[in-house]
C-alpha cells in the first residue's frame, strides 16, 4: 500500500512512456557503440559484452527470486547496466571481470538499495569504480590496438594528451574510434548516433551532455596545454577519453540525475569540471567515472536547491508587491 500512495511534485501529467520502452530505447542507442567496439577490438570484446549482460540479468533474477520480489528482468534495465559496464572496460580484461562487475552493480549498487529507482549512484559506474579499485592493473593496462588486436605496449593516447596537450591523432581517427581505449568509448560517431537518437526520442535531456562536453571542451581549451593558457585542444579533450559515453549514457541516468532542467545543466557542468580537474591535476588519467559518481551523490542536493519558479511568482509578484498590491 505504501508504494501505491506516492506523493511527487506537480505537475502530474501522465506520460505514455513506460520503463520498458525507455530502457529499450537506451539499449537500441547503445547498440552502435557495442557493434563498433566489437569491430574495433575483435571477438574478445564481444565476449566481454555478452558475459557482462548475462551476468547482470542473471544477478537481478537470482536476487529478486531470493528475496521473493517480483522478477523484473524484462524491463531491460539490467541489460543496460551490463551493457554499459562492459563498454567501459578495457578490451583485453579477463572474462571473469565483467561477470563479477555486473553482479556487483546489480546486487550491491542497485538491488540492496531497493532496486530500480532507489539506487543512489549509477550501478554500472559504481561497478567500474569497484573493478578499478579491485584489479587496478587489469583496468589500466589491458588495452588493445584497434583493428590489429595487439596488446598495447605504450600509454593510452589520453595519458599522453594529459601530459603534453597533444593527441597525435587525426580527427577522422578519433571520430571512428581508431585508438586504444575502453570497448565502447572510442567510436565517437556511434556514440553520437545513439545520443542523438535518445535526444530525438525525448528519452534524455540534451542539457546534461551539452553541459558536460561544453564545460570539458572550454576547460581543456583554457588549461589543456601545460604551461600556457587558452592554447589547449578542446576537440581532443572531449573525443579522447570516456567523456562521450559518460555524458550521453551515464550522466543522464534518470534515477541518479536531477529532475529539473536547470539542475540537469548544473549536473553536466559539475561533471565536466570534476573530469577536467582529475585529468589535469589528479592522480588518474581519466576522471569520467568519479566525476559522474560524485555528481550522482550531490543530485539530491541539486534537486533541493534548484527548484523551478512557481507559476505566478517571480517578476509579476515582485512588481505587485512594489506597487503595494496584494501578494500571495
Amino acid at each position: 500500500m505504501k508504494d501505491k500512495l506516492l506523493v511527487t511534485p506537480p505537475p502530474h501529467v501522465k506520460s505514455p512512456k513506460a520503463v520498458q520502452g525507455i530502457m529499450l530505447d537506451v539499449v537500441i542507442a547503445l547498440l552502435p557503440a557495442a557493434i563498433a567496439g566489437a569491430v574495433l577490438f575483435g571477438f574478445r570484446s564481444l565476449l566481454i559484452i555478452l558475459a557482462s549482460v548475462a551476468s547482470a540479468v542473471a544477478s537481478e533474477a537470482i536476487y529478486q527470486k531470493a528475496v521473493k520480489k517480483q522478477v523484473t528482468v524484462n524491463d531491460f534495465s539490467a541489460v543496460i547496466t551490463g551493457l554499459l559496464m562492459a563498454l567501459t572496460l578495457p578490451p583485453d580484461v579477463p572474462v571473469w571481470m565483467p561477470v563479477i562487475g555486473s553482479a556487483f552493480a546489480i546486487v550491491i549498487a542497485k538491488q540492496v538499495f531497493g532496486g530500480l529507482g532507489y539506487n543512489f549512484v549509477n550501478p554500472a559506474l559504481a561497478a567500474r569504480a569497484f573493478l578499478l579499485a579491485a584489479w587496478p592493473l587489469h583496468m589500466t593496462r589491458d588495452w588493445l590496438n584497434p583493428m590489429t588486436y595487439e596488446a598495447l605496449s605504450t600509454a593510452t593516447p589520453l595519458v599522453g594528451f594529459n601530459v603534453t596537450g597533444q593527441s597525435g591523432l587525426t580527427l577522422t581517427q578519433m571520430l571512428l574510434g581508431q585508438r586504444p581505449g575502453s570497448i565502447g568509448e572510442t567510436c565517437i560517431l556511434a556514440l553520437l548516433l545513439g545520443g542523438v537518437y535518445l535526444i530525438a526520442r525525448d528519452v534524455i535531456d540534451y542539457r546534461i551532455p551539452v553541459g558536460y562536453l561544453g564545460t570539458l571542451a572550454v576547460g581543456t581549451w583554457i588549461f589543456g596545454k601545460p604551461g600556457a593558457l587558452f592554447q589547449g585542444d578542446p576537440l581532443s579533450g572531449i573525443l579522447l577519453g570516456g567523456a562521450f559515453i559518460g555524458a550521453f549514457f551515464m550522466a543522464t541516468d534518470y534515477v541518479t540525475s536531477p529532475v529539473t532542467p536547470r539542475g540537469r545543466l548544473f549536473m553536466g557542468i559539475g561533471a565536466g569540471l570534476i573530469t577536467l580537474m582529475i585529468r589535469l591535476w589528479g592522480g588518474y588519467p581519466e576522471g569520467v567515472t568519479y566525476a559522474i559518481l560524485f555528481m550522482n551523490l550531490v543530485t539530491p542536493l541539486i534537486d533541493r536547491y534548484v527548484v523551478p519558479r512557481y507559476y505566478g511568482s517571480g517578476h509579476d509578484a515582485v512588481a505587485r508587491k512594489a506597487a503595494g498590491g496584494e501578494t500571495r
Partner: peptide, 21 residues
C-alpha cells in the same frame, strides 16, 4: 586473482554491510 579493494576502507564497508544485512 585477489581483489585489492577488499583491503581498503571501501572493502571494509562492503563486507560490514553485507554481513550486517
Amino acid at each position: 586473482e585477489p581483489a585489492a579493494v577488499m583491503l581498503t576502507p571501501p572493502g571494509g564497508f562492503i563486507t560490514l554491510g553485507v554481513l550486517m544485512a
